[in-house]
């Protein structure tokens, strides 16, 4: 599917990633799943930002999803979660643009202490909605040309981003940001059973 689900801006502090703003589009998930999906996308975004070096880009595949991450040299980071069919080049160009826009509107001295409620930046939902159609990116052509795709680090699973000794299952269990409900979803989703039958 050509679809974007989540767009977040973080400040990557020395000990943890600080969420400054987030927007979600989860209409395509079933009603009772949306809460858990949102928590997981937030969790995955934070986890990956914290494990991405400053001045680098990563695209991490997890099942049918793709998390695109860009952490700038000044530690401002953006995460875009979309379906794996969404073009990577457009995703990263959009991240560049969003972070530029954020920098222009939110002074850097607010980044290390800001919270979702204190930061005045309301553009994320509009970006998320507009770029559902990657053709919109035509307007970003120059930025796209500047992007060096060969420098994007590709990872096949979130596990591949984790540091030695870290286990995703343990992190999910320990996480305080995930509700019991979300943990239940995680556990069920892991049991993949085939659904195809001849009948």
């Amino acid at each position: 599917m050509v679809k974007l689900y989540a767009l977040c801006v973080f400040f990557k502090g020395p000990s943890e990633g600080r969420l400054l703003k987030a927007a979600y589009d989860l209409q395509s998930f079933s009603f009772f799943q949306r809460g858990a999906v949102q928590e997981f996308m937030g969790f995955a975004s934070k986890t990956i930002v914290e494990r991405t070096q400053a001045a680098s880009r990563q695209s991490v595949k997890q099942d049918a999803y793709m998390c695109h991450v860009y952490v700038r040299a000044d530690n401002l980071g953006g995460v875009l979660i979309g379906d794996h069919e969404y073009p990577q080049r457009v995703a990263h160009t959009l991240l560049t643009k969003v972070l530029d826009d954020f920098t222009a509107k939110v002074p850097a001295d607010q980044w290390s202490t800001g919270t979702e409620s204190s930061i005045a930046f309301t553009q994320l939902p509009a970006y998320l909605s507009k770029y559902q159609d990657p053709r919109e990116a035509d307007a970003l052509t120059k930025m796209q040309n500047d992007l060096d795709e060969t420098k994007i680090i590709l990872k096949n699973t979130i596990e591949a981003v984790l540091e030695r000794g870290e286990k995703l299952d343990d992190m999910v269990i320990k996480s305080e940001n995930l509700s019991i409900q979300s943990k239940a979803f995680y556990k069920t989703a892991k049991k993949t059973n085939s659904c195809c039958s001849f009948s």
Partner: peptide
């Protein structure tokens, strides 16, 4: 056998 690598097996597959 499962339908594909890593999934749970069933009698059909």
């Amino acid at each position: 056998f499962s339908d594909r690598t890593g999934n749970l097996p069933d009698i059909f597959h």
